[in-house]
Design a protein around this nucleic acid. Structure first.
Lengths: 224, 224
DNA sequence: CCAAAAGTGTTAATCTTACACCCATGA
DNA sequence: TCATGGGTGTAAGATTAACACTTTTGG
């Protein structure tokens, strides 16, 4: 392939499925579509690729523009390239997904863009093929959880075992047995007990845990 | 994003890691690079994306041009998009991987392109980032094998248990215990015993098996 | 008859699953 | 004191892993 072949008149956009876990629900960062077609529709934040920037740089820009924080780890999901996926012409979308915690990670939602974290419990409808992207991202996370720990990016620094269980239940869409869950997670040995003060809540106070960064990262890289 | 943003002067290419399993080795389809830079170097077959064709259509064309057969199932691997990955300018490569059997699938290697199946046992060096692509594809296959059966596309219609074991050992880069392997595979119940005539070979004749298409396909879709 | 490759079972250890009650706290 | 949510152990069943010899066949 040489330079003359480069000018193919195909657009490339980058989009991000950024998930958080809040109020015991999983949510995704959405913006309001500003252009035709589907003006006003719910879409994933996205941006045209700049020839001089890497895919990851564009991700950072998307994040900065919509939540005022670009320091979020993302992974590539898929290139969506159907000929007729975008009514305005041929646009290939390279999508990424990432995870965030709304307390730990500073987030300032860009109101001009209609940026918001939208709950997925009620199956919102997105324009274009953005529903497919979200579905694929959730599948990918689900699969990934069988190999690697999840939670560091989604939970606050300290959390209870029940919060972690809720997170797992939500992303794996399955219920756990409290005792078995607790045992299995603790056996993996990437959690550290902190102290016994939990925020004011009814009932018995829960033990707080935090991730042991070294062990968590090891498992994160190499899998269980 | 509107049409005016489309002309970004970024090239898009599609490339394929097409694996086969032959002579008890895994091999990948390679061609000779015809252009500068790295003229003559070993590369993966690839082609510029045409604005009016889907990614999958381009895959078919690549396959047809290099092995004379476009009827090969491929899956998307990754978009490789580093700014400096290609010395001639900004080219995003969307890579796919697929599996083939050289007896079952008619293959006519395009000699003009230097098309060949190159063994991976000796760790050949490729130009550009094509080594990364192969490595990622092999990792992907490895991971996939934990959920889904492998073999239908790689083996002849009828095969022995030892051939299947060799294939698994090769792609998972680990040795198996004959007895345990046999038991586990048979328990999964997607194999059918055929008859006891095996091609002339030293030693005892082996039982031939074939995949039960329905059960194999079910597992292939839904995983174990 | 022997070299080469195919085929075959059992046991111990580990992992998974199911299951129900007591504990600490704040209102 | 009671309602709320947190915390705990065990046993049966399933799965996995380790292990070595016999069978069939062609040369």
């Amino acid at each position: 392939m040489n330079l003359s072949e480069k000018n193919q008149n195909i657009g490339i956009s980058v989009s991000i499925c950024l998930f958080c876990y809040n109020d015991e629900e999983k949510k995704v960062l959405t913006v309001e579509n500003k252009d035709q077609p589907f003006k006003g529709a719910l879409i994933l934040p996205n941006k045209a690729l700049d020839p001089n920037k890497s895919l990851e740089e564009i991700c950072s820009e998307i994040l900065f523009e919509n939540i005022g924080n670009s320091n979020i780890y993302v992974e590539q999901l898929n290139a969506f390239g159907k000929v007729y996926r975008h009514p305005n012409g041929r646009i290939i979308d390279i999508s990424f997904y990432g995870l965030i915690n709304l307390e730990k990670d500073k987030v300032i939602l860009n109101e001009d863009n209609g940026a918001a974290f939208t709950s997925l419990e009620s199956f919102p409808e997105f324009a274009f093929d953005h529903n497919d992207m979200i579905e694929m991202a959730l599948k990918r996370i689900k699969r990934r959880m069988k190999y690697r720990p999840l939670g560091k990016n989604l939970l606050p620094d300290q959390f209870t075992m029940n919060e972690l269980e809720g997170l797992y239940a939500s992303f794996l869409t399955k219920k756990f047995d409290k005792r078995n869950f607790r045992r299995r997670i603790l056996e993996m040995n990437f959690l550290r007990e902190v102290k016994k003060v939990q925020r004011n809540t009814r009932g018995r106070k829960a033990i707080l845990y935090e991730f042991d960064p070294k062990k968590y990262n090891n498992y994160s890289k190499t899998g269980f």
